[in-house]
Amino acid sequence: MIWESFGSVVLGLALSWAALRSLPDRLPSVRAVFLTGALGALFGAYLTHSALGTGHPVATLAGAVFVGTVTLSLLIRPRSRRLARSAAAQ
């Protein structure tokens, strides 16, 4: 379980790095992204390990990647664009 935890945190940090490289202007601070990716992957590993039990390290890491990706996707902000006001609001 120790190696699964360590591996999931490393995978979460790698996911965070990839997200920051591909969407730098649509994510909050670097610190928040790395923390969210690591903790999301760690929670995913815990959840998958609890559901499947011991003896499934690849599936546990796959669950960590999945939950880490979903958690990071919650941080993505919409593209910045100016909202058009309606004629009634002006």
Rank of each mutant, 00 (worst) to 15 (best):
I2E: 11
A32G: 06
G12A: 09
Y46F: 11
G44I: 00
S8L: 05
A84D: 04
A38F: 01
A41T: 07
A89P: 02
V65K: 03
W3P: 02
A41F: 09
G44L: 01
I76W: 01
R77G: 05
L72F: 11
H56D: 03
G40H: 02
T36R: 03
A62V: 13
A62S: 14
D25G: 08
F43N: 09
P57Q: 09
S50D: 07
V70A: 13
S5R: 05
G55Y: 05
A87G: 03
L27F: 06
G7V: 11
S29H: 08
A51V: 14
G7Y: 08
F66L: 15
L13G: 12
A89L: 11
R31T: 14
S80C: 04
P28M: 10
L74N: 07
R85K: 10
R21S: 13
F66M: 15
S80H: 08
S16P: 06
W17K: 14
E4F: 05
L42Q: 03
T60S: 06
L11I: 15
L23F: 14
L20P: 04
R81Y: 09
V33Y: 09
L83C: 05
A51L: 15
Q90D: 14
V33D: 00
L11F: 12
F43Q: 08
L15V: 03
L39G: 10
S29E: 13
F66Y: 14
V70D: 08
E4D: 10
D25A: 13
V30K: 12
M1H: 10
A59L: 13
L27M: 06
V58L: 15
H49F: 11
L13C: 09
L11V: 14
I2G: 05
